[in-house]
């Protein structure tokens, strides 16, 4: 058994009296992709934000590549960022609109691995090429790019420092279907080429089925079911997992049965 690249143990995050994440534990092997599935209020995004260091956990541990990460000091944040990067649904909000895409991608390189300008430029070109962005796109500002191009730029910036883990929070949710398939293919290729691991947070079961091998289903801050993604979808054991699957539209959708199942679950 290889050493997990990410170990999350008994993670709890409270906001005042509200417990957003309630005892979440999972492991991620190198090169693996784990889905975190849930609806709004399930705690999936809070879990992702704790992993990325954007929230301090109330209790519990997060270890990346065997090292516990905690603290908000500059040094601690840099150490964490070298190992784990996060991608958001709307990359627009995470880019400086005044910088070109190439300048934004160069930023983490300067921060983590300072070197001669020519080396940085060469590495940025290689990264942009790896995510399928032209040189011209690299010289554009984020506002001039399409949503798919911006998400490619966000991926290039995230993998610039060669992190071990990428946390993707609804990273393809805002994209058109045809562009979403391109980004999913790019993520597949990157994982095969670099051995990076993904935590894939999504409400979309179809996307999770495509992008992950194992998954956890979260509800009200807790993991209610976990296992190989294909098994979860074909033979769900928890009634909530079953409700999620049955809620995905298809011909002959039985909406009345769904409403009954949901009421039964809420009454539990």
């Amino acid at each position: 058994m290889t050493e997990p690249v990410l170990t999350v143990t008994s993670l709890v995050k409270k906001f005042g009296r509200v417990t957003a994440v309630d005892g979440v534990s999972f492991e991620l092997a190198p090169g693996a992709s784990l889905g975190i599935v849930g609806e709004s209020g399930s705690g999936k995004t809070t879990t992702a934000r704790v992993l990325a260091g954007l929230e301090e956990p109330t209790s519990g541990e997060v270890a990346v590549a065997g090292e516990h990460v905690r603290g908000r000091s500059r040094r601690a944040r840099l150490r964490r960022a070298r190992r784990l990067q996060m991608i958001f649904q709307d990359p627009y909000g995470s880019f400086d609109p005044r910088l070109t895409v190439a300048e934004s991608v160069a930023e983490p390189l300067r921060l983590h691995a300072p070197g001669p300008a020519a080396d940085v430029r060469a590495r940025v070109d290689a990264l942009l090429d790896q995510v399928g962005l032209s040189r011209r796109a690299g010289d554009s500002r984020p506002g001039e790019l399409s949503g798919g191009q911006r998400q490619r730029a966000a991926i290039a910036r995230a993998i610039a420092v060669a992190p071990r883990v990428l946390v993707l929070d609804e990273a393809v949710a805002a994209l058109d279907v045809s562009v979403q398939a391109q980004i999913l293919a790019l993520l597949d290729d990157l994982r095969r080429e670099t051995g990076i691991s993904y935590v894939f947070v999504s409400h979309d079961l179809a996307v999770v089925r495509h992008a992950t091998e194992t998954a956890v289903v979260m509800r009200h801050g807790r993991i209610v079911e976990r296992g190989p993604t294909e098994r979860l979808l074909r033979e769900p054991a928890h009634p909530y997992t079953r409700l999620l699957i049955d809620s995905v539209p298809r011909p002959g959708w039985d909406l009345e049965r769904l409403a009954r199942d949901r009421r039964a679950l809420d009454a539990l």
Binding site: V177, Q180, L184, D204, L205, A206, R209, H210, I245, V248
Partner: peptide
């Protein structure tokens, strides 16, 4: 290009 939950999972073909 659309991933699906129901039925067999074929490879996605991006446009």
């Amino acid at each position: 290009a659309s991933p699906s939950v129901h039925g067999d999972q074929g490879p996605l073909r991006a446009i």
